[in-house]
Design a protein around this nucleic acid. Structure first.
Length: 200
DNA sequence: CAAGTGATTAGC
DNA sequence: CTAATCACTTGC
């Protein structure tokens, strides 16, 4: 399958990209070169300078956020709560520090490998959360700034998800972001059991 | 429901 | 330098 080109990450608005990421395949080869992959079922958009929930709010430039200023098509990986990594896709133009957080995937290739890495009972909790999927796919600090058109980690076309199949709602875990906490910038595939949390 | 965990950050 | 803060997960 063909890797998504840089234009996918740079030529649309971030909210549009967050929707179109649903149904794409996230592929991370293991140390033997075997494909470990999952289909993206949940995303959240972070709109840079205007978004209080975004690390790069008001164009805040630090060592960490510098990644988002470098232009779309690379990985933004951060450690959170001291133990978990999160995988984001940088979107937009240079100096427009947007990103889309991948919150959940549905395991597809090499599920055995993911089970060994995760050591959980049921497959449902294998990749149904930002920290979980990073463990299952082997994403860690080495993936900071990784080129998404390179051979370390990439995305592929897989399924077309119709707008009708996409649900939207408020983002998770950003209550500090005042009025931005309620923006419906989280997207997921309806009725997919690997989505991290379904609102009531 | 609460504890755990350490990089990152701002503020001295 | 120090202390506060987290885009979360798991096991009580």
């Amino acid at each position: 399958m063909k890797k998504l080109p840089v234009s996918f990450y740079t030529c649309s608005e971030t909210l549009e990209i967050a929707r179109r990421l649903l149904g794409k395949l996230l592929v991370v080869p293991d140390d033997r070169g075997d494909r470990v992959s999952g289909m993206i079922v949940e995303t959240e958009a972070y709109l840079g300078e205007i978004d209080k929930a975004c690390h790069s709010y008001q164009n805040r430039r630090t060592k960490r956020t510098e990644t988002m200023f470098a232009g779309g098509g690379i990985a933004y990986v951060t450690l959170i709560y001291g133990m978990y990594f999160q995988f984001n896709v940088v979107t937009g133009a240079v100096n427009s520090p947007h990103a889309v957080l991948v919150r959940a995937v549905e395991p597809l290739e090499n599920i055995e490998k993911m089970r060994r890495r995760r050591a959980v009972k049921n497959d449902q909790s294998l990749t149904s959360g930002p920290g979980k999927l990073c463990i299952a796919l082997g994403i860690n600090a080495d993936f900071k700034n990784a080129d998404l058109t390179g051979d370390k980690i990439w995305l592929e076309e897989y399924r077309q998800i119709e707008n009708l199949q996409i649900a939207e709602g408020r983002r998770i875990g950003i209550d500090y972001a005042a009025e931005f906490a309620d923006k419906p910038w989280r997207f997921w595939i309806k009725n997919n059991q690997y989505v991290s949390r379904i609102p009531k």
